[in-house]
Amino acid sequence: MQNTVLVVGGGPAGLSAAATVSASGFDAVVVEKEEVLGGAPILSGYAKLVPSGEWAKDAIGRMVTRVVDDANVTIHTAAKVTRLEGEPGNFTATLSNGETVSAGAIVLGTGFTHFDPINKPEWGFGTFEDVLTTTQMEQMVGAGEIRCPSDGRVPQRVAILLCVGSRDRQIGREWCSKICCTVSSNLAMEIKELSPETDVFIYYMDIRTFGLYEDKFYWKSQEEFKTKYVKARIAEVTASGDGRLLVKGEDTLVKRPIVIPFDLVVHAIGMDPNEDNPDISRVFGVGLERHGFIARAEHYTNSCGTTRQGIYSAGAAYGPETIDDSISQGHTAGARAVADLYALVRKAG
């Protein structure tokens, strides 16, 4: 029996899975396709995380350091698993860097891919310089200055459009990406903090700041940071003659068309299934659910399971997920893997 767990993906879920495996006295091997560990929060340059308010590079950085400094964890970056053979308790994975890994169980912390708003051309991303995504805006916040990319002016008005790449049958995204409402209200506060003269408007269909995020983010941004929430699904973003942008749509609550000038428009982009999921599904022999995320096993007694025994998953690989919950699920998946390996050892006697 192998006492090694292969963790695929070095983001919040994978890093916590590896840490749990190691803490349980087993060895972990982390395979990350990018050059650096940390996953989306690091690769996309997130600013302050929800809900801790801690900078991503500090918080996720600690998770990376914990795993890198752990003698029981082996790390392969810039590598993918290209072939998998074997069965629970005795898998052999071949990596793209030519190495092989023998492992008793596998945790897929393969995460998601940000929606590319070029697929909603009517909202101006890719056409106008001053139309950005939430991740680009996070990077701007990280850099500490809110400016229009086109000419460097301080924006008087910023519009954040929610549900870009979520809840939209037209583009086959029939899911809520769960965290964008909270992230957007957090971003609105960060913008106001850095640029007090900027007014932030959030265009929404619903506000889904679930659980304790309600008052901590939604109410706070509205009541203390004067974010304006406008109920309108935007039809299109166009250029006005004076270098600004025009946001067009129907204000649902006044039942009127709107054409409002803005300096910056931010797309609150959703979470797509990892673009590599077809490959991941083929290589690991795990099923995908109907939206293209990793299919979850029966959850009540097979937490963090997939359609294949011995292979577990966690976090945004299963569907849109928060960073905190991805971390918790990573721990669970790591513990499941270790526990099932113990069971195999006992059975073998």
Partner: peptide, 8 residues
């Protein structure tokens, strides 16, 4: 004439 709202 259209009822478009043009500014806040």
């Amino acid at each position: 004439t259209p009822r478009t709202l043009r500014d806040y």
